[in-house]
Design a protein around this nucleic acid. Structure first.
Lengths: 223, 223
DNA sequence: CCTGTATGAATGAAAG
DNA sequence: CTTTCATTCATACAGG
């Protein structure tokens, strides 16, 4: 199969449950820790990916080292799928919930505030699973998108750059006070030339060694 | 699609709910699971190391590779295909930077003094572009969100959790990070069965392959 | 299957 | 520090 079957990784994580009590065998991880872990693995995945790429480009000329790697790199899945370690499902409002949300939304106040959120959540939970975060996000998105749409529609100022949103390089939107541009340390200015091409990567380190051995050393991971 | 399309993100297993195991805040892992995790990370570390070595030995012969490297490598990173051709306006931490930041963060001191920021920024700049403002904001956000999450999810104090599996209660999560949010599943299934064949790679490779987590430095990671 | 589009969620940056 | 905004990521879902 062209598409390698994704591993059963997630199950290893979700398969948890039961026990623990005073059991010394159980470990409890907070979601935050899980997140950290996930990212750390992602770092390795990234490094491996890059190295593998490198390896491939090199072996096209020198295939000597291929063997070993062949074995080690046995799981393209984990590598490419490291991001997802834990499956994430996304909440989908039921028609009913959506209706209510919608009603509340244009019913006025666009800032539900914490307390309000709680209430709403509580009410909606009677129509299906939902959490405060969901409600929070919903309003957040609703407002943002409503705004954007509005801005895009009436816009006819001969600006061809009005444009949906693709690569709106000119953040001439209503934006804020800042002309935009991400901060850059005073020194090392040179790198700023990252025009449209994106580099954001490791090579920024030292041109000579794209991969710094140090970076691949496992560091102390969890607290 | 010659391009290493990784965006696939594995098949949709989120169909109709199902699964959804730990809707408790914490995840409980057995030693076995922890061990597996540890090993997998260790393997990653080892692979990276070996690849780095390989890379070094190869480039010593063909330094031309170094050049290409600089260009070739830029994008496939950032978890899950970052936009290919888009100039990014906002700073995005590289996995490496994130790892470091994260480490510093939970390393205790939640008070990134001006001086400290400078140091951190300097260190991180070795792994990519970054400015003090970025670091500052990062900590600011990190703290705020961490806090919010915690508040929203009062965890049972070391309470053992039987977690039979019913859990029909609606322990409204709320956090902000990964962990699964409940979906639609009015009813949940344990579904833990790792029915599918076999588990992927890594742990299998462990014994036979040349790499031995113990001998190689990758070791420390979990408390 | 593969592609495009709607939208839930994550997060850097800024305002309050 | 807390709340809000803007932008981007990833996925659920409808079409071909």
């Amino acid at each position: 199969k062209g598409v390698p079957k994704k591993g059963k990784w997630e199950e290893r994580w979700t398969e948890n449950g039961r026990k623990l009590a005073g059991n010394r065998l159980g470990h409890v991880m907070t979601d935050e820790q899980m997140e950290v872990l996930r990212k750390q693995i992602a770092v390795y995945a990234t490094i491996c990916e890059q190295l593998v790429e490198l390896h491939k480009s090199l072996t096209s000329q020198n295939d000597l080292a291929g063997v070993r790697l062949g074995n080690l790199y046995c799981d393209p899945l984990i590598t490419s799928g490291a991001h997802k370690i834990t499956g994430r499902q996304r909440w989908t409002p039921t028609p009913m919930q959506l209706q209510i949300l919608e009603r509340i939304f244009d019913q006025g106040i666009g800032t539900p505030s914490k307390q309000k959120i709680k209430e709403i959540t509580n009410e909606l939970s009677q129509h299906g699973q939902i959490s405060e975060t969901n409600v929070y996000n919903w309003f957040q998105n609703r407002r943002a998108r409503s705004k954007r749409k509005q801005q895009a529609a009436p816009q006819n100022n001969g600006e061809s750059e009005v444009e949906t949103e693709v690569e709106s390089l000119s953040p001439n939107h209503e934006k804020k006070t800042k002309p935009e541009e991400f901060h850059q340390p005073p020194h090392q200015q040179v790198l700023t030339s990252r025009t449209t091409d994106e580099d954001l990567c490791f090579q920024n380190t030292h041109p000579t060694t794209a991969i710094d051995p140090h970076t691949s050393k496992p560091e102390p991971m969890l607290p």
